[in-house]
């Protein structure tokens, strides 16, 4: 080929094209898109720290305040079994706040696609000779990774809240938090794939993230609710992530399973096993990711 002097060294393009199939380039692209997100996250220490403020406010101010109010009103927000086990409201919402942190970080993280679009970087990715599915998958995993770290980092507060963590519960939490993070991050990517500017972000925030948070059972048990709300809570994918977190964290801390069942998520009066809840979340995430992939593959 025509490289007159020795300045440029590289593989000729025609050799490059047929060297491998399509799977390996796609995996490599997924990796680098994921890696970029993680690198940016890691570099942005202030975001890492400021994102701890909201959970702390919930746990310390909101939790303490409501604990006092509830004990004044006679206590027992989660039934006699929980009360007998000495469960405070702050302890009750602790796993929920971990879930909240995952929920917000996952969707925010995934929505960074809209930033990338607005600031031009997305174009660099979209014109590359890669399958567009890599964009959706890489971004989803990137958002999920950030969200997982944001959630798990809160575990350091456990001693402060008086929740005992065991090795078993921490090990079980990692995949559960990841599944929740993945499901919500994929949802964020699916939404972001159709958004052309950050203007729609407020709408997503108010009409999706906040309702998902309030209906997820992060702040109150999902049992004994009015029928309309019972239906809505069961339609909230985040609810299937909060419940396993609560079971694992509080179960590990010694709350009896009878008390856990009372405050746990039931569907048609059946207590769902953790594995089923995780499977529901995973399925939701995969569907969302499929939508995102389809949206990214559309060419003008």
């Amino acid at each position: 080929m025509s490289t007159p002097n020795g300045v440029m060294v590289g593989t000729p393009a025609d050799e490059r094209g047929r060297r491998r199939g399509t799977l390996w380039p796609t995996l490599r692209a997924i990796y680098i898109i994921w890696y970029r997100d993680v690198l940016r996250y890691w570099r942005d220490r202030t975001r890492l720290l400021t994102s701890l403020v909201q959970p702390l406010l919930f746990l310390i101010v909101f939790g303490t305040g409501l604990s006092s109010a509830l004990s004044g009103a006679g206590g027992g927000f989660a039934g006699p079994a929980a009360a007998a086990a000495g469960l405070t409201y702050t302890q009750f919402i602790f796993p929920g706040i971990i879930g909240m942190s995952v929920l917000f970080s996952a969707i925010f993280g995934a929505m960074s696609i809209v930033w990338d679009r607005e600031f031009g970087f997305l174009k660099e990715v979209l014109v590359a000779p890669i399958d567009r599915s890599a964009v959706a998958i890489g971004k989803s995993l990137g958002g999920a990774t950030q969200a997982m770290v944001q959630g798990l980092i809160l575990l350091i507060l456990a001693p402060l809240i008086g929740v005992k963590l065991t090795l078993g519960s921490v090990v079980a939490l990692v995949p559960l938090v990841f599944v929740l993070a993945f499901a919500l991050s994929s949802m964020g990517v699916a939404i972001a794939s159709r958004m052309r500017s950050m203007q729609g972000f407020q709408v997503v925030m108010n009409f999706l993230m906040m309702p998902m948070f309030f209906l997820s059972g992060a702040l109150f048990p999902l049992s004994g609710l009015p029928a309309w709300m019972t239906v809505l809570t069961r339609l909230d994918p985040a609810a299937y992530g909060m419940d396993p977190l609560r079971r694992v964290v509080l179960g590990g801390a010694g709350l009896p399973s009878s008390a856990l069942d009372r405050i746990g998520l039931t569907v048609f009066d059946t207590v769902l096993p953790i594995v089923v809840e995780a499977a529901i979340l995973l399925a939701f995430g995969v569907v969302m990711l499929a939508i995102a992939v389809r949206n990214f593959r559309i060419r003008d």
């Binding site: 060294v9 590289g10 593989t11 490059r16 060297r19 380039p25 490599r28 692209a29 990796y31 680098i32 898109i33 970029r36 660099e124 990715v125 590359a128 000779p129 890669i130 890599a134």
Partner: peptide, 12 residues
């Protein structure tokens, strides 16, 4: 990032 998505071989 660019080298990765454009398949510039790792060796070069």
């Amino acid at each position: 990032f660019h080298a990765f998505i454009y398949d510039v071989p790792a060796s070069v």
